[in-house]
Design a protein around this nucleic acid. Structure first.
Length: 451
RNA sequence: GUGGCUAUAGCUCAGCCUGGUAGAGCGCCUGGUUGUGGUCCAGGAGGUCGCGGGUUCAAACCCCGUUAGCCACCCCA
């Protein structure tokens, strides 16, 4: 069979890369559970009408079709989920009677999007989501809570060698009030323009605001000034907004409540994880179901990668009749993070295989003795494997070296027939008993480490 | 969906402009070292030059098409 060509956008790591990915997934899961979030998994598919409810994402949904489908139109119209928030909203509605609110859950799964892949952009990738959903109402402190969990997640990831992250926060209510206060009614259009500010610069953005959002010269300038507001604490934020808004003739009763919320959010998050969050009125977010706080996260030194953890508050995503379940959540782009860690050589694995020990085989007649040693080591929690062939010891050592296995076990190599174990990094070889010997804790399992 | 660039050994790439039937480094295998690796030395294996067609005595090289990858736009994790 000819060598298959790689499929762009569907990443596959080598075993060493998977060690790093698994470490990231494990770390996030541990942080989520430390905060008491319950784990769930939803099915990979949702009815198309559910997925397409929010319109704009339609072109990126993968449709599920049975190859031998009898006839068109007879299937239920299923698509692969493109995020975990929409399926979660459906899950909440479906299981509302059995859940306790506020319901706090995490969910780590693959999602699929049919866009053109690029550096850090995939068609199949892992998201690690946390959300809190309330029944009818959701207290503000949950917005702080999810941001804190995310901040702690990034803090934990730093131990693996992940660069520090900055949490950028904005508030839909605030910016909507401000832009309407300027006399601009198509807030969606304004946000789409503002979203490009960092990429195309102020002049081009002003031009866009005039052509796309129907802004006058003055309105465009005012938008840019507002979008330029960024602050590391609530007081500074309020002062800056007051300054710009009053100069542009937007009354405080219009924007006061939104600004107050954003200021509180930044201050309360920073009080619990110092220096991690800042307000940034240029954060727009494309998804239209957000109704309050919106979050984006960038890795320091890797701003080109874009946001690697985003989310916000949504008040109307899950509703049944007059009953609504407002929520707030954030989603880590695990694959995006991992691809950068591996691609830039920031983090690597201590070895590509789980085995801490390769048990050498002296000759095929004595393979059983080597298997017995391996079995004993395993009962004591030491991952190990037996050499594939009774090749020369030099080759068996090289076999271990290639895979990063730190120890090679020689049966009956001692003068009195005792076993010996060699640390192939130092070359040190000592007498050992499989019933008692243990490798150093840092060698027991593969780990992700800064490289 | 639109645009630009790229495709040659397992990997990274040279060769293409000015056509003459395939190269380097790394990796891999063997031996020196006759059952304890890594260094060093010597030797060796490995390529439908993405695919299809055209021009030509002759195509990795020129032309057309096609597929895939990368990047940018769009959008987003």
């Amino acid at each position: 069979m000819a060598r298959p060509t790689p499929l762009s956008g569907f990443p596959e790591w080598l075993p060493e890369g998977r060690v790093v990915e698994q470490a990231v997934l494990d770390t996030l899961r541990r942080v989520f559970e430390l905060h008491g979030f319950a784990g769930i998994e939803t099915r990979a598919v949702e009815p198309l009408d559910q997925l397409l409810r929010k319109g704009e994402t339609s072109k990126e949904v993968y449709v599920l079709r049975r190859l031998q489908a009898e006839e068109e139109g007879s299937d239920a119209g299923l698509g692969l989920h493109f995020d975990l928030t929409v399926p979660f909203a459906r899950y909440v509605l479906e299981h509302a009677g059995k859940l306790h609110f506020p319901f706090r859950r995490y969910q780590i799964q693959k999602v699929w999007r049919g866009e053109r892949p690029q550096d850090g952009r995939f068609r199949e990738f892992y998201q690690a989501d946390i959300d809190v959903v309330g029944d009818g109402e959701l207290a503000f402190h949950h917005e702080v809570e999810v941001a804190v969990v995310v901040a702690e997640g990034f803090a934990a990831l730093r131990e693996l060698g992940v660069p520090p992250a900055r949490l950028l926060v904005n508030d839909r209510v605030l910016v909507e009030a401000l832009y309407r206060g300027l006399g601009l009614d198509d807030v969606e259009a304004v946000l789409r323009c503002i979203d490009k500010l960092a990429k195309i610069g102020p002049e081009a953005t002003a031009e866009l605001l005039r052509t796309e959002a129907g802004a006058s010269q003055e309105q465009a300038a005012a938008c840019l000034e507002l979008a330029g507001i960024a602050a590391d604490d609530g007081a500074a934020l309020l002062a800056r907004v007051r300054e710009v808004a009053s100069a542009r003739g937007v009354a405080e009763e219009v924007w006061g409540a939104g600004a107050e919320r954003l200021a509180r959010l930044v201050d309360e998050v920073n009080a619990r994880v110092p220096g991690v969050a800042s307000a940034d009125l240029a954060i727009a977010r494309g998804l239209d179901y957000y109704t309050g706080s919106v979050f984006e996260t960038v890795l320091e030194g890797h701003e080109d990668l874009g946001s690697i953890c985003s989310g916000g508050r949504y008040d109307a995503l899950a509703s049944a009749g007059s009953h609504t379940y407002p929520g707030v959540g954030l989603s880590f782009g695990v694959s995006r993070i991992v691809s950068r860690l591996l691609g830039a050589g920031l983090v690597g694995a201590t070895r590509a295989v789980p085995s801490a020990v390769l048990v050498a085989v002296t000759d095929e007649e004595s393979r059983a003795a080597s298997e017995a040693v391996a079995a004993t080591l395993r009962t004591r929690g030491v991952p190990c494997e037996v050499a594939p062939s009774a090749a020369k010891f030099g080759k068996q050592i090289r076999h271990a070296d290639r895979r990063g296995i730190p120890f090679v076990w020689f049966c009956g190599a001692g003068e009195d027939g005792t076993d010996q174990v060699k640390d192939i990094r130092s070359g040190e070889q000592v007498t050992a008993d499989a019933a008692e010997w243990l490798p150093p804790a840092e060698d027991l399992w593969p780990r992700a480490v800064r490289t």
